[in-house]
């Protein structure tokens, strides 16, 4: 009983933070509410058992993204007097919840959470889970999938991050500084 109440409370917090991010007038408050939204979402990931994803969501969503937004706001604030943004358009306020309801309706067709016979759980996951230790001699299956079975994948992801950093420095840094 308390478990269900906790989950309902958590989802309510996520929904409240998400809608408040869009509805609040001041951009500074919006940034902080977005950070708290990421933190609640991290709790949801942890509840689903995806601790790695929860880690990343908490650090990047609540930490790094907030800092990036804040630095951008600090930089643009003296030049832009319109720190208060206009109210959201009616089409967004009405249309986005309708889209959400449509998505929830479509989510009925997904297989239930943790279903062992769902397509995602019968394709190749059992092979990884059963043969991971014999193949890679690494106790953590997540690590062996990430760094060993799909090492190329991780390598290319690292290249993508490297490229993103170079591109940001090229675009944002002023010449001569």
């Amino acid at each position: 009983m308390t478990y269900a109440v906790n989950i309902a409370l958590l989802l309510l917090l996520v929904l409240t933070a998400a809608s408040a991010t869009f509805l609040v007038r001041e951009l500074m408050s919006s940034v902080f509410i977005l950070g708290s939204y990421s933190f609640f979402l991290a709790l949801v990931w942890a509840w689903l058992g995806a601790v790695d994803v929860a880690f990343v969501e908490a650090v990047i969503g609540a930490g790094l993204a907030t800092v990036l937004f804040l630095i951008t706001l600090f930089d643009t604030a003296p030049k832009d007097s319109r720190l208060r943004r206009p109210p959201p358009p009616l089409a967004g306020v009405v249309g986005l919840p309708l889209l959400g309801i449509l998505l929830l309706f479509a989510a009925n067709d997904l297989s239930p959470f943790g279903d062992p016979t769902s397509p995602a759980n019968v394709h190749i996951s059992p092979v990884y889970l059963q043969q991971s230790y014999a193949d890679t001699l690494t106790p953590n299956v997540v690590t062996s999938v990430l760094m060993d079975y799909r090492g190329f994948d991780t390598l290319i992801e690292t290249v993508v991050i490297f490229t993103a950093g170079i591109a940001c420095a090229l675009l944002l840094k002023e010449p001569g500084s």
Binding site: L68, T158, G165, S177
Partner: peptide, 23 residues
């Protein structure tokens, strides 16, 4: 390899934030 990923991500993050904040 994990150390490689960590160094790459750390340098990239600092580079992005510094290029945003440092003019």
């Amino acid at each position: 390899t994990q150390i490689g990923v960590a160094v790459d991500v750390a340098v990239t993050g600092i580079s992005i934030v510094l290029s945003l904040a440092y003019h």
